[in-house]
Every structure is written in C-alpha cells, then in structure tokens.
Design a protein around this nucleic acid. Structure first.
Lengths: 238, 238
DNA sequence: ATAGTATTGGAACGTCGTTCCAGTCCTGTC
DNA sequence: GACAGGACTGGAACGACGTTCCAATACTAT
C-alpha cells in the first residue's frame, strides 16, 4: 500500500554503521587503541572520512558502539543455567577473557554508566546476586563492589596491554615488572618487594577469580549476618 | 676543592620541572584532562613549548609526575597510627577524596604499575593487611582485590567527572542517570531498574566504603578459615 | 528520462604533541 | 672585563589527528 520500500540494499559492499563498527573492532584488536584513526578506518574500508561521518556521529560514538557490541556478545555467551554463584563467576571470567582478547574494551568501559555495555554488566551481576539470596538492602552495595572490582581489573589489563609490545607475552612482561619491584628500597617498600616473587609466577586470571571469591565471601557474611533468607536456598536460579 | 658550584638558581621566575608539574596540576584541576595542552601550559607559564620540553620528556611523563605528586601527598597525610583495619579504611577514603578533588588522577592511575603512585598504594594497603594478620598465602590476592577495587571506583569517578559539566553537582548528575535507569525496559533490566531509586539517593563515598568493608569481610573469612592467628590480635600496628 | 534524495570521497581547517633552532642568559677562566 | 661554552628560552614549523564541507555520484520514485 504505502510507498515505504523500506531501504532496499544498495550494493553489496555498501557502507553501513554495522560494517564501520566491525572494521573499527578489527583495527582496535590488531593495532590497539592508538591505531584507530578515522583515516586508517577510511583506508580499511576503501572510502573517505566524509562517508564515515555520514553514518557515525563522531569517534566517541564509534568506540562506544564497538564496546557495546563486544560486551553484548560476551553476555549472551555466558548465559548458562548454573547456580547463581557459579553464574557470577562465569560472567566475571567471561568479561576477563573478553578484555584479554580486546584490551581496548577495558578502557572504554569507563564511559557513560548508562551505556548498554555497562547496563548489561550491572544487570547480569545484580540479577545473580538477587538469585543468590542477598538481602535487598545489601544488593546495591554488593553489586557495586563486584562491578567496580571487575572494572578495576579490566582497566589495569587494558593499561598493561597498552604499555608492552603486542608480541611480548604476559610472562615476560610480569618478569620485567617483578624485577623492578625486586629492585626497590626494602625500607620503603617491604610489602611490594615481598610480593615480587609471587608477581612473577602468578596467574592473572586465577588471581582475578580469587578476588571475585573474596568479595562473594564478604557478601556472604552480610547475608548470614542479618538476613532472614536461609543460606543458598534462593528459589530463583537464572 | 672541585669546581662543582652545584646549580646556583637563575632568577626567581626560572622554569623548573617542579614549577611545570605544579602548573600542570593547576590546569588539570580547573579544566580537566582535556584542558592540559602544551600550548595552554606554555601560556600559563608565560613561555614557549620548547622551554617545557627541555625540562620534561613528553606529556606522558608530565601526567605521570603530576599523578605521583598528588598520590604521594595523600599517602603522607593519611599515615595515622590507628589499628590496621581503620588504617586501610583511612587510606582508601584518602584516595577517594583525592580523586574527588583531582578526577584526572583516577584515569592516570591506570598507567605503568611500577610508577611511584601505584607502588605507594600497593605498599600502603598491603602493609596494613600484613599488620591485620592476613596469612602470607592470602596477602597477594587480598591486596590485589582491594587495590583493583579502589582503582575501579577511581576510574569510574574520573569518567563521571569527565562527562558532566564541572559546575553541575553530583546529586543532579545522579538524578539524571537514575532517570535513565528508570526508563529502561523492565523485562530486560529488572535489577538495574530496581536500583534506580537507590542510585538517586545514595552516597558515593559511603558506598565506596561499604565496598571496602565487604572485601575486608571476605578477607576475614580467609583468615579465620585456615590461619593460626587469633582474630584481631596481630602484634604490629602501623 | 528526469527530478530529487541518499551517499560518497577527498580537500581543507583548526588543534594537538613534538622537534628544531637561532638566540639569550649565565658561569668559569684568563 | 672580555670571552668561550654550556644551560636555557621562545616561537616557528612539521606531521598527524578529528572534524567539516562540498562537488560529484548512485540510487529511487515518478
């Protein structure tokens, strides 16, 4: 009836917001945050900068869209039907691994807190906390603690990826930082020096998970301390 | 004896690394991270860019030096002789307040982990954890969890300061974000929507401290779980 | 076929970090 | 008190960036 032919595709290689975001993710993954320039993106897509700006407002929106896309992909993958506690660990590990592959995401997560990426993380963690039986009064603080911890690790991993060459592996990087820690003044930095050895041999991923468990244990003390729910007996399990 | 007159001062308004870093902090505090350009800095100091680059390698070093300076100031202020647990809370709150005043520090902390700023934070938190009686095997993971949580909050606060105009107060900002959360699809974001009200009325600082307490509580379960130390009876108190 | 809109590619603008360099200041030596 | 030489300064200039502008082209509806 009406005349709305509803966007017939132009030609197969036509530019689109999706294609631009996908190309941006490719560049970010292979060259890091510094490699994503509008010129590089235009070259990658064999077009000009004007064409890109017709589909995307500015570089910030591009980075935000790329981040949302990566996070949304992670969150849909870790859906799982396990117990709440395991689900929280799975979500956290999924985020850790995603940022390991796309370090730039760790930086971008610190953007506007109402962006889809951030909302999905809060919802995913918070929803599982409810399922765990955390009393209502403690839910906000508990979710905040978990999410901020995850953000902190994410940002740190992104920074680490930024500072060392993309080809050097993690163990070589840790060894060099550990050596710097070990060379510190023992009078000024006794604790850091003691940790140097453990730093060299430690596993980032396992330590991240240990932090999650530590926070969950802390949340557990709140729950058993003053709540009326029986431990581990929440009816819902997402 | 020797001819080393050891740097007699030039004239009172002479440029120096310290004066440049101090000017950079002023600009960062008043105008945010985007306001610090080499040209603005040169104008502020009534000189040219070449003169600045004679004292400072590049902008990165300048930001790192400014961050180290602010953090060192905080750490010396919160020294305190209280009990370890209170000392950790004091250090954390000191960092929170410093980043509240200098939001750009929250971004810069995610730099090289061997910079003085980061080392001082790790040492300060870790040393107090030892004093608390945390068993050696758990010290590294515990310090890591606390520091990463602090970093996460710092980064988030820095991002918030970046996004809203410097004159709008925190409560107005929270209200606007809470409104966005409240307008979300209840089917997709049930938890976030429930938290919208609490977000509007919550106190960032108190919630930050609640997170610290949660992690400390988690660390406490490790200590009492497998260690031989009696609770709260560590002999040393920094 | 033609008019009108959607989309494109690339030139051009202003700003940034950084480098370069001619000049100036200051100090130590005679 | 002249002067050589290093310390230090100020600003012009360079290349790269994000963004805007616009003539040219591709496509759609009539």
């Amino acid at each position: 009836m009406a005349k709305k032919t509803h966007r017939i595709e132009r030609r197969t290689d036509a530019l689109s917001r999706e294609r631009i975001v996908a190309a941006a993710i490719e560049i970010l993954d292979s060259g890091g945050e510094g490699a994503l320039t509008v010129r590089a993106l235009a070259a990658h897509l064999a077009t000009g900068s004007g064409a890109i700006y017709w589909h995307v407002a500015d570089k910030g929106e591009l980075l935000a869209a790329a981040t949302d896309e990566v996070i949304a992909r992670v969150m849909s993958e870790v859906a799982g039907g396990t117990k709440p506690r395991e689900a929280i660990r799975a979500v956290a590990l999924g985020l850790f691994d995603a940022i390991d592959v796309h370090p730039w995401v760790g930086t971008q997560l610190f953007r506007e807190p109402w962006r889809p990426a951030m909302l999905e993380i809060i919802e995913s963690v918070g929803g599982r906390l409810q399922a765990l039986g955390v009393p209502h009064a403690a839910q906000f603080d508990s979710a905040s603690a978990l999410v901020h911890y995850i953000l902190g690790v994410a940002g740190q991993n992104a920074a680490n990826a930024r500072v060392h060459a993309p080809d050097t592996d993690r163990s070589a990087f840790l060894t060099s930082v550990a050596a710097q820690w070990d060379a510190l003044d023992p009078a000024k930095y006794p604790f850091v020096r003691q940790m140097a050895t453990q730093l060299r041999d430690h596993d980032d991923r396992a330590q991240f998970l240990a932090g999650i468990d530590l926070i969950l244990a802390g949340i557990g003390t709140v729950r058993s301390g003053g709540a009326d729910e029986p431990p581990d007996a929440a009816p819902i399990s997402i």
